[in-house]
């Protein structure tokens, strides 16, 4: 199986959103969110362009997940303005912290949740992509394993593969490497990088592991207690 020759990974770099949108995919202006007594986000000002790779860093409870949920359109802010692309023009695929897999189904059955007839010509094409991605992520021999019997790393890989098989314009992942060792985490980032370079996929990746992300190219957005502390290239951190 040649990852490089796969039709799903081939082609020139194209815009993640091919419908003539402005370059700014996401724009947040003075966004604040409070959950009871906890200030989850405080006056966050941020814009993300199409095709960017963003690392969202910060300690646990810094507001990373809340910010991702705002960007996904799952929650609305208490104050401030949020501009996110319409789902019809820009498809966002997510890897959730709790993974949201169907435990009684096999890994492969879980991946079939991403079989969208509007982007895949037939099941054969989807199956081919599925097998390639499983092979690249290193779980092609465990596709028949029930998710409830899988270890944490495998579950995470299945959740990531499912999100990628949806061929999104924007890939949002909340701690996607939490259960992966550094080798697998690095491999995963390389795959996301290929999707970013070849397909123009915007990647927004939340991680509390600053050491891991500073080795990669991309923009870091660092949060602390709901406040945006730093935004800039990873190599300057």
């Amino acid at each position: 199986m040649n990852f490089q020759q796969s039709p799903s990974f081939s082609g020139q770099r194209v815009s993640g959103v091919q419908s003539g949108l402005s370059k700014n995919l996401f724009r947040l202006e003075d966004v604040s969110i409070r959950f009871g007594s906890i200030q989850a986000l405080s006056n966050v000002k941020l814009s993300i362009e199409s095709g960017e790779v963003i690392f969202l860093t910060g300690a646990s409870g810094a507001g990373k997940t809340t910010l991702l949920r705002v960007l996904s359109g799952d929650i609305k802010p208490d104050s401030g303005k949020v501009s996110i692309p319409s789902p019809k023009r820009c498809f966002i695929s997510k890897v959730f912290q709790d993974l949201r897999l169907e435990m009684n189904k096999t890994c492969e059955q879980n991946l079939w949740a991403a079989y969208d007839t509007s982007i895949y010509e037939n099941k054969k094409e989807f199956k081919k992509d599925l097998e390639e991605l499983a092979s690249v992520l290193g779980f092609d021999n465990r596709l028949d394993l029930k998710v409830k019997d899988a270890n944490g790393g495998l579950k995470q890989k299945v959740a990531i593969a499912r999100a990628l098989l949806a061929k999104p314009d924007v890939f949002i992942a909340d701690e996607p490497t939490a259960s992966l060792d550094s080798g697998n985490a690095r491999r995963l980032f390389e795959i996301l990088n290929i999707y970013n370079v070849r397909k123009g996929m915007t990647v927004i990746w939340a991680s509390h592991n600053k050491e891991l992300v500073k080795n990669f190219s991309g923009r870091i957005i660092h949060l602390d207690n709901g406040k945006l502390i730093y935004t800039g290239h990873a190599c300057f951190i």
């Binding site: 498809f91 695929s93 169907e102 949740a113 991403a114 079989y115 969208d116 509007s118 982007i119 949806a166």
Partner: peptide
């Protein structure tokens, strides 16, 4: 509910 949720999340459906 689960299968519908997943279809909404990973397919272009509403």
């Amino acid at each position: 509910i689960r299968s519908s949720y997943l279809s909404e999340q990973f397919q272009r459906r509403s």
